[in-house]
């Protein structure tokens, strides 16, 4: 069960450990609190409305996802080859296809209504 990529990178055996420091966790936590507060303040108080509100909501949600990936899940620290990152990206492409494809097929084609 030896790993094939041993040849390029000496694996210290800790490839699977979560790293991160108190600093990165606290920073991530503060960022996600801020990113949750922004839409709450802007949207619930009707400071932004209409399509702009949707954009604010989705952008802050995606940013928060990125914050969690880097500060909590330590995606950046994966060693090469970055299989985990590749599978994640592929999975996200498929999730987007499922959501956008379904909406396109089911909603924006008036024949189906």
């Amino acid at each position: 069960m030896a790993q094939h990529h041993d040849t390029h990178a000496p694996h210290g055996g800790d490839a699977h450990e979560s790293h991160g420091s108190m600093k990165s966790y606290v920073l991530g936590f503060v960022l996600s609190l801020v990113l949750t507060a922004i839409p709450l303040i802007l949207v619930l108080n009707d400071i932004v409305t209409g399509n702009a509100a949707d954009v604010v909501l989705l952008v802050t949600a995606v940013l928060q996802f990125v914050v969690q990936l880097f500060f909590f899940m330590h995606l950046k620290e994966e060693k090469k080859p970055r299989y985990n990152l590749m599978v994640l990206l592929l999975g996200l492409v498929i999730v987007l296809t499922i959501v956008a494809g379904s909406i396109w097929i089911m909603k924006y084609n008036m024949v189906s209504h």
Binding site: L90, T97, G101, W104, I105, N109
Partner: peptide, 21 residues
């Protein structure tokens, strides 16, 4: 293996999703 995810609607062309789809 990836492209197989982008063809599914050809199983229901007659469902009425419109010409663009």
């Amino acid at each position: 293996s990836v492209f197989s995810f982008f063809t599914w609607a050809h199983h229901f062309f007659t469902m009425g999703s419109g010409a663009n789809v």
